[in-house]
Design a protein around this nucleic acid. Structure first.
Lengths: 262, 262
DNA sequence: TCCGCTCTGCAACCCAGAACACACAAGGAC
DNA sequence: GTCCTTGTGTGTTCTGGGTTGCAGAGCGGA
């Protein structure tokens, strides 16, 4: 298993070799806008306190790299040695067990920072990161990080806040997984995803781009069980779905379901 | 209730991970011996970088309070307005659903800091904290915190580290809950608890003081299922148990079981 | 010493969700 | 159009663990 990951990292991922991973997706045709204008650091919360000048000085040192859909950004065998910033595309952070079953920790949208454990001195970190679409990712090396981030009090505060939020989310997810039925978790996750996905066009029709399989990975459930739940939701008119795309129709009722336990 | 002297004995365990309790620092050899000299702040990792003088200046402002077994330290209705330090006794951090089912987030040993979300500006935080034994707890008010902690870069780093570890632990627990059977989670938790519990006497017989019910709360399982698993472990000679007390007999085999999935 | 409470051990039944196994449909690539 | 891959719908069987209910056992307190 682990070997396969290493292979994936190096070259083209062979689909069949990754039982835990949904197959590769089509490239995001929707990526628009002027690529030159958007830089890695601008849109990142972590650096919000820095002045334009400071940002520009860092800018120079930030190399970026393109990943193809399905490619691994980092894995256990290739431990994290830099801080990543997702510039475009989407990345899935996940963990796997020895026998290949996976749980998705997060699906990141552009602007997200990952590999944050580096900031905290946690070298060993057994998460994997995989581009689920063609993605462009900037990397800050440990050096950059140590020189500009760790030292800076403004950044330190941001880091703490980031981690604090992450702790809160994880605690909530943990109790949900332990105490709530699949339907509730599904509903809640859909609502969260709906909020997270940037409005695609003119602020309307916020479709979530995700497959049942990916969703299942997030829920800690099988694809089948997830599909069944989704079919029920659709039948109730709570959502509308098409291949790889979900639209939330009734937030209120979903919210109610999300709050149910056992 | 045993009123364990919070000043642990020397020969601290190799201290790998102690998931439920933020690192209790190795006791400073210089401070041992005089129980009166022990104050809330000494033994806390978070303040490790502060000089003796600094510690003493803060010391004055730290009131402590005694909680009886079963008493709530904070709850949702009583939102957290200070940072807590457990001086003696034990505290359980947990969450509950509307219908009263609970999941334990952590069981804290002396030296642990809790209510940390305060440090990160997360006022709203729906955890509960309950003393499971008679406990003495010190409180740092928001003011203290803001004046002495947030500002101090040395502390900020410690906070980040603390939160980072917590994130790593939570992620692991989450995947275990999602992907591993009860037996594996139980085995792993027992090993962790065994490491966490300070050696009771002369470095031998490290009995874990916990009831099946409390353990079940940590595992996200029912008391019955937990009891059954424990009975099996006992029958196999992996552990030995008596009322409220568990002794690990065979770490290796437990470790193997802990690694099993599905 | 006896009482009462908390902790642990069963056992019988039930059910959500996992596993397995297909069928088919929607797009892309050609 | 025709393949062919990837995503979705559905049924069946199986089982881990939840639920319920009770009995006995250890321990602390009066």
């Amino acid at each position: 298993m682990k070997d396969e990951c290493a292979v994936g990292l190096a070259g083209t991922p062979a689909a069949g070799e990754r039982p835990w991973s949904p197959q590769k997706r089509e490239v995001d045709v929707l990526t628009t806008g002027d690529p030159e204008a958007f830089t890695c650091l601008n849109d990142v919360d972590l650096f919000a306190d820095l002045s334009v000048a400071e940002l520009e000085s860092m800018q120079l040192m930030v190399p970026e790299r393109r990943f193809r859909a399905g490619e691994l950004v980092f894995s256990q065998s290739e431990p994290v040695t830099s801080l990543f910033i997702l510039r475009s595309g989407r990345v899935r952070i996940f963990r796997i067990t020895e026998d290949g079953k996976a749980l998705t920790m997060a699906i990141l949208e552009p602007g997200a920072v990952f590999g944050e454990m580096l900031l905290v001195g946690q070298r060993m970190y057994d998460n994997y990161a995989e581009a689920i679409e063609e993605s462009v990712i900037c990397q800050l090396t440990v050096d950059d990080v140590e020189r500009h981030l760790i030292a800076d009090a403004r950044i330190a505060v941001r880091i703490s806040r980031l981690l604090g939020e992450q702790v809160a989310r994880l605690e909530e997810r943990l109790t949900d997984l332990a105490l709530r039925p699949l339907s509730a978790r599904t509903a809640k996750t859909l609502l969260t995803l709906a909020d997270a996905s940037r409005p695609s066009m003119l602020g309307q029709a916020p479709a979530i781009r995700i497959t049942h399989e990916q969703l299942a990975g997030l829920l800690g459930a099988t694809r089948e069980a997830t599909s069944k739940t989704m079919a029920e939701f659709a039948a109730e008119g709570l959502i509308r779905q098409s291949r790889g795309r979900i639209t939330v129709r009734d937030r209120n009722r979903l919210g109610t379901i999300a709050r149910r336990s056992s």
